[in-house]
Design a protein around this nucleic acid. Sequence first.
RNA 1: GCCGGCGUAGCUCAAUUGGCAGAGCGGGGCUCUUGUAAAGCUCAGGUUGCCGGUUCGAGUCCGGCCGCCGGCUCCA
Length: 641
Amino acid sequence: MIVMKQVNVMGDKIEIPDDQSLYELAKKLEKNEALGALVNGELQDLREQPPEGAEIQFVTYEDSAGKHIYWHTASHVLAHAMQYYMDGDLKLAIGPPVDDGFYYDFDLPRNLSEDELENLEGIIQQIIQRGIPIERYSCSVEEARQKFKESGAEYKLELLDELDGEPSFYRQQDFEDLCGGPHLMSTGDLGVIKLTKLAGAYWRGDETGPMLQRVYGVAFQTETELEEYEKMLEEAKKRDHRRLGRELDLFHISEEVGPGLIIWHPRGAEIRQEIENYWRNRHREEGYRSVRTPHLAQEELWEVSGHLDHYKQHMFPRMEMDDRNYRVKPMNCPFHMQIFNSRTRSYRDLPIRYAELGTVYRYEKSGVLHGLLRVRGFTQDDAHIYCRPKQLEEELQQLLEFTTEILSTFGFKDYEIFVSTRPDDYVGSEDRWELATNSLKNALEEAGLDYDIDPGEGVYYGPKIDLKIRDSLDREWQCSTIQVDFNIPERFDVAYVDEDGEEQRPIMIHRALFGSIERFFGCLVEHYGGAFPPWLAPTPVWILPVDPANREYAEEIAAQFRNENINSSIQPASESLGKRIRTAIKQKIPYAIIVGSDEEEARSVEVRTYGEEESNTLSVDEAVQRLRQIIDSRQPITPLG
RNA sequence: GCCGGCGUAGCUCAAUUGGCAGAGCGGGGCUCUUGUAAAGCUCAGGUUGCCGGUUCGAGUCCGGCCGCCGGCUCCA
C-alpha cells in the first residue's frame, strides 16, 4: 500500500507518495529547470523527501539560491578535474560558491601556472559530458574521521572537527567531498565552465597558515551567457578609473615618486577642488569649524594616542632631527585633541565639530595598492565631534542624514552599511564598547537604514559604521566611516566643565564622509564612467567653430560663459569638425557647442550633449542660463534645450 | 608581505627557432576656408623596467631586484 502525504507547491496542494523525492516531484510537475527547493523556507537538495504538509518552492538558475547550487556543483567538478590532473596527488581544502561564481582551494605538490587552467577546463568539459550522477551519503563523525586520516586529508579533518551533526558527502564516481550541499543531480546538468583566475589564498585566511592555490571560475547554462559575461567584463574595464585617469588626463602614479602616491593633473585636481568646495560649504552649513594641522608630529603624541602601540605597522618610520623624533601622521585625531585642549571648554560649547581635509600617510603592503582606491598617501575628509553623552544619539542621526545626502549628491544610492564591532586588539572597557556599538546601531535603526555586522572589524579605539561603495567590477570599498570613541579623549585627558561645575569627559565621534578623497574620487570616476556631470567637469563646454572665420563668434560665446563663471574651451578649426566632435566625445565633454555662419547670423548655438545623437539649437543666452542652472542644481549631464 | 601573471615610443600593440627594434594613435611642422565620431604630407620620439649571467650575437634564454595587474591577508 502506498502511503500518501500532502505538500504545498508554490500555492498548490498536491498529494504525493510518502517516499517521493523533490526530484521526482519536480519531474512530475514538469519543473525540469528546478535545481533545488526551499522547503519550509530552507534550501534543500532535490534528493530530499519533503515532510508532510511542507511548503515547497523550487529554485532555478534564475534565483540566487539556484545559482549557488549550480556553482557549488561546478566547484566540485573543478576539484574532480584537478584530482585527475594531479593524478590524485592533492589535498582538498574548501570550494564554495561566491557572489559571481565559485572557487576551490587546493594544496598541490607544485605551483600551478595560469595556462594550465585551459587543460583543466578540458577535463571539466569531459566530466560534464559524461553526465556522472552525483550521490549523497552520510556517515558518523568517527567513520569520516577515519576516512580522512587514512587519506591524509588534513584540511577536511579540521573542517570535520567544527561540524555540527552528521557529516554528509557528495560523490561523483571516483571523486567525493565532505559537503553540506545542496548539489545538482548530475555533472551533466552543468553547461559551460570557465576558469577565470589563479591565486594564492591562505588556509582559513590566516597569514601564518599554509598558502593554498585557489582557482576561481564561473559557470553558465549556455555559451551565450558566458559570452555576455565576458562582454560585461570588457565594459567594466572601460570604466576602470586607472584607465580613465590616463585617458582623461586626471592623475598618474609614478614609479619615481613612489608606489601608492598620487600625482594630480590639472583636470583631476580641478574636479577634486569642486568636490572639496562643495564639501566645505556643506560642512560650514552643518556647524563644522575648519582646522588645519601639520603633517608631522613628535613621537610622544603618537604614544599618547596609542597609535604607536596599535597602529605602528601602518606608520612610516621615525625621522630624527635636533634630538627630537618625528612621525608622519597616519591620522588627524591627535591634533584635533590638541585644539580642543588649548583652552577650557564649557558644556555650552558642545557639540564642537572640527573639520579638516587632512592628508595622512599610511604604510600599506605592496600587494594591496590599487590605483586611487588603495594608496599610501591620501586626504581624509576628516572631522571630530565632541559632544555630551546625551547629545550622542542626535549627533549620530544627524551625521547619517548628512552622509547619505552627500553620497546622493554624487549619485551614489547603492552602498552597503556595516557596523564593525570590537577587534581583538582594543583599548578601553568592554561595557563602553558595547554602549558605543549600541548607539551606532540605534542611530541606523532610527534612520531606517539596513546594515550588516562586520565582526571584529572596529578600530582599536572604538566601533564604527562603514559605508561601502562598489567599483566597476563590483568590489566593495569602504568610504564613509563614523566611529564612536570613548578612549582617545581619555588618553588626552579631554574634558569640559559641566553645568554643575564638574569636569566631564566628552564623547568623540571620528567621521569621514568621503572616507578619503582619493578613494572616493576613484569610485566616482567609475560610477560616472569618466563622464562627470557639468558641475564637476573641469571644462563642461567645448566651443567648436565650424570654420576659422567663426573664431571671433566663438570667443564671444566663451566670454558669455566666462561671465557666468563657466569654464569653456575653444577648439580651433585647424582640425576637421568631425575630428573635434569625436575628440569631445572621447574626452567625455558634457557639451560640444558648434557655431558656424548660420548660428553666427542667428546669434544662436548648436549644442551637442554628451551621450546624445541629436543636437539642438538655442540662443546663446538660453544656453548660458540653462547650463548655469544645471550646474547650480548639480544635475547630471542633461540636454540644454 | 604571500601566490600567479605581466613589463617594447606618451598610449595601444607588432617583432619566425636568439640574428639590423616596427605600426597605429598621440606630439611638432607644413598644406587644406573645414557642418556633426578620425583631412593630407612630413619630422621627432627607444639604454626594450633595472642589475647581473649564458651566447659570436639577448626584446627573446637564466638569476636577482623594482613596478604594475588579479587574488589572499590587511585597510580609508
